[in-house]
Design a protein around this nucleic acid. Structure first.
Length: 424
DNA sequence: GGACCTATCT
DNA sequence: TAGATAGGTC
């Protein structure tokens, strides 16, 4: 006999919605499942075939045929465990089902845990018969793994909302909470696959996250792609930016940017909208000709900062991405609180560096002292800047001229890590 | 019928 | 807003 790889269930109910819900859950728990909306179809399925199902789940009150007659036939003739289910939980009804051979009686609305533990009836039967040990050994590890997954996701990690949905009354799926760790794994997978080749199924496989489904990943991927298209900006941010542009003198540019990240054209020192294909950026260690590097959103690979982009700014609103950085060696997202010191571009309201002092960014081609509020020495204290940094006084002057209140407004600022005595 | 994508809902 | 869901296409 060929050994099946998991529990095969036959589910019979006139309620199509319930059938669909049970079917989904069965897939989730690695059960193979066949559904029937009437008893006669189920009968035909079973006729002459003894080994195609390990378990039958049937509604006690089916309109087309007597469920109890079916129960007797299946338990006595085919010897498959049968679970009866019904909204009627009166003692007499339950007793009749058990007397007629049902291995269990489920009172509707059903719960996920009932479906999850369905395997136990199969296991009990096999143990009772003390045979098919190979079959058991093959089924049980799979089931155990699935159950562990459910427990891990719904209880241990709290990443899945409490299981309180009742089948038969509501078929709503539980809502998945994307924890920072899940997000990190998601982005890592996307990065590894490349954004243009990353599909929900592949991402799901790479994440190997217990309790997570393709639908979850697909939904997340859609949001993630939308975010990349917008350059990481939220609606609120866009609205705020537009308001700010309209009301303040420090207009960033004529062409109002729809991006979180803005850049300067080095030749004109004018702000230009950041191309959509640049998302996260970081200061390179030293390998690059440029101080700045960016991520190409299409590949999520680090690319040298184009020469005409001298620096960028991250919006001052928190977003999913504002508080994340990429480890340049692995391209993995680094949790906020582990933000490496060589990431200088961070949101203006970055909360994990209470002592950080905002300083202006600038770039130059001489090593002269400048009139800027930050000296070369101070600049060296800015992570990512070194003695080789290029300083362009014209740029600073431009900044000062155009943005006299820059520091107040926290625009065009980076974070200077604490060395307070070196910073006036 | 599954995988994927987009639009829409909650 | 984040996540779920519906519906269309391949």
């Amino acid at each position: 006999m060929a050994l099946p790889t998991n529990i095969r269930a036959l589910v019979i109910d006139h309620d199509i919605n319930l059938l669909n819900a049970i079917e989904k859950l069965c897939y989730q728990f690695n059960y193979s499942v066949k559904t029937c909306s009437n008893v006669s179809d189920a009968f035909n399925l079973l006729l002459g075939k003894k080994d195609i199902f390990d378990l039958v789940l049937i509604e006690a009150k089916m309109p087309d045929m007597d469920s109890y007659g079916f129960l007797l036939h299946v338990t006595q003739q085919i010897n498959i465990p049968v679970i009866m289910m019904c909204a009627d939980g009166s003692t007499s009804v339950v007793m009749k089902a058990i007397e007629d051979g049902a291995c269990d009686y489920w009172i509707k609305p059903l719960t996920e845990s009932l479906i999850m533990n369905m395997w136990q009836h199969v296991a009990r039967k096999l143990w009772k018969e003390n045979k098919n040990l190979e079959l058991m050994s093959e089924k049980l590890p799979l089931i155990d793994q699935k159950i562990e997954e459910v427990i891990n996701t719904s209880v241990k990690k709290g990443s899945v909302e409490k299981n309180n949905d009742k089948l038969g009354s509501s078929t709503k799926k539980k809502r998945l909470k994307w924890s920072p760790e899940l997000k990190r794994k998601f982005v890592s997978a996307v990065v590894e696959l490349n954004i243009d080749k990353a599909t929900p199924k592949k991402i799901l496989a790479m994440m190997n996250e217990r309790g997570m489904t393709r639908d979850h990943v697909a939904s997340k991927l859609q949001k993630y792609r939308n975010k990349l298209k917008r350059g990481g900006e939220t609606k609120k941010q866009r609205k705020q930016n537009k308001t700010a542009e309209a009301t303040t003198e420090s207009k960033i540019s004529n062409e109002s940017s729809e991006f979180d990240f803005e850049a300067y054209d080095a030749s004109t020192l004018h702000v230009v909208p950041m191309p959509t294909n640049f998302t996260h950026q970081q200061i390179s260690n030293e390998s690059s000709e440029f101080d700045f590097e960016a991520y190409d959103a299409s590949t999520l690979h680090v690319v040298p900062m184009p020469t005409n982009f001298t620096h960028q700014q991250i919006s001052n609103e928190s977003s999913e991405f504002d508080f994340e950085a990429y480890d340049a060696s692995t391209l993995h997202v680094v949790p906020n609180n582990f933000m490496p010191t060589n990431f200088t571009h961070q949101p203006n309201n970055f909360p994990h560096q209470p002592n950080a002092v905002p300083v202006k960014f600038y770039q130059t081609d001489s090593e002269e002292e400048t009139s800027s509020s930050a000296s070369i020495n101070q600049q060296q204290n800015c992570n990512g800047f070194g003695t080789n940094s290029i300083i362009n006084p014209a740029f600073i002057n431009t900044l000062d001229a155009h943005f006299p209140n820059a520091q107040d407004q926290n625009v065009f600022l980076a974070w200077h890590h604490p060395s307070p005595d070196s910073f006036q």
